[in-house]
Simulated scan of single mutants.
Amino acid sequence: MGTYICLVCGYEYQPPLGDPESDIPPNTDFQTLPGDWACPECGAEKSNFVAEAG
């Protein structure tokens, strides 16, 4: 479970934190997020995220 970064605004989705605003619980892997999940900062689609290198 790695961090994914929004290419539009730079938001980092971190699985240990989840996304409380979207009712995504902690420890939810990015790959298992719903297809309609969007960046909580800018609203970009899930397809606009890339895995953090490293």
Score class of each variant (00 low, 15 high):
Thr28Val: 00
Gly10Gln: 13
Ala53Leu: 07
Asp36Ser: 13
Val8Arg: 15
Ser47Ala: 12
Cys39Asn: 04
Cys39Ala: 11
Cys9Thr: 13
Ser47Ile: 03
Glu52Ile: 00
Gly2Phe: 02
Pro34Ile: 11
Glu45Asp: 06
Pro26Arg: 12
Pro26His: 06
Tyr13Arg: 06
Ala38His: 07
Glu45Ala: 07
Asp19Gly: 02
Gly54Trp: 02
Gln14Asp: 11
Glu21Leu: 10
Leu17Trp: 04
Asp29Lys: 09
Ile24Val: 15
Pro26Met: 03
Glu45Thr: 00
Tyr13Phe: 15
Gln14Met: 08
Pro26Phe: 10
Ile5Met: 13
Gly2Tyr: 04
Gly18Phe: 09
Pro40Ala: 02
Asn48Thr: 01
Glu21Arg: 12
Gly54Tyr: 01
Tyr4Gln: 11
Thr3Met: 08
Cys6Asp: 06
Pro20Phe: 07
Tyr13Trp: 06
Thr3Phe: 11
Ser47Thr: 10
Gly54Glu: 09
Lys46His: 02
Asp36Trp: 10
Val50Pro: 00
Ile5Tyr: 01
Gly18Cys: 06
Ala51Ser: 03
Lys46Arg: 15
Pro25Gly: 11
Gly43Asp: 03
Glu12Leu: 01
Glu12Lys: 15
Ala53Lys: 08
Cys6Asn: 08
Ser47His: 05
Cys9Arg: 09
Pro34Arg: 11
Leu33Phe: 05
Ala51Phe: 05
Val50Gln: 14
Glu52Leu: 13
Thr28Lys: 01
Ala44Asp: 09
Ser22Glu: 12
Asp19Arg: 05
Glu41Pro: 00
Glu45Gln: 02
Val50Leu: 06
Phe30Pro: 04
Gly54Arg: 03
Gly2Ile: 02
Asn48Glu: 13
Asp23Gly: 12
Gln14His: 10
Pro16Ile: 04
Phe30Val: 12
Ser47Tyr: 11
Met1Gln: 03
Asp29Phe: 11
Tyr11Pro: 04
Gly10His: 12
Pro16Tyr: 07
Glu12His: 13
Gly54Ser: 05
Gly18His: 12
Cys6Gly: 06
Gly2Ala: 08
Glu41Val: 09
Ala38Tyr: 00
Asp29His: 11
Gln14Ser: 14
Asn27Glu: 15
Leu17Ile: 01
Tyr13Gly: 05
Thr3Arg: 13
Gly54Lys: 02
Thr3Ala: 14
Ile5Asn: 04
Lys46Ser: 02
Tyr11Val: 09
Pro25Ile: 07
Asn27Ile: 01
Glu52Asp: 11
Val50Met: 09
Leu33Val: 12
Asn48Ile: 00
Glu41Phe: 10
Asp36Asn: 12
Gly18Arg: 04
Thr32Trp: 06
Tyr11Cys: 05
Lys46Met: 12
Val8Ser: 10
Leu17Gln: 15
Val50Cys: 07
Pro20Met: 02
Thr32Asp: 15
Asp29Arg: 13
Asn27His: 14
Gly54Thr: 09
Pro15Arg: 10
Asp19Leu: 12
Pro40Gln: 08
Asp29Ile: 01
Pro40Arg: 04
Gly35Pro: 07
Ile24His: 02
Asp36Gln: 06
Cys39Arg: 00
Glu41Lys: 11
Pro25Arg: 14
Phe49Cys: 04
Pro15Leu: 03
Asp23Trp: 07
Ser22Phe: 06
Asp36Met: 03
Trp37Asp: 04
Thr32Asn: 10
Ile24Phe: 06
Thr3Gly: 00
Ala44Lys: 00
Ala51Tyr: 04
Ile24Arg: 01
Ser22Trp: 04
Leu33Cys: 01
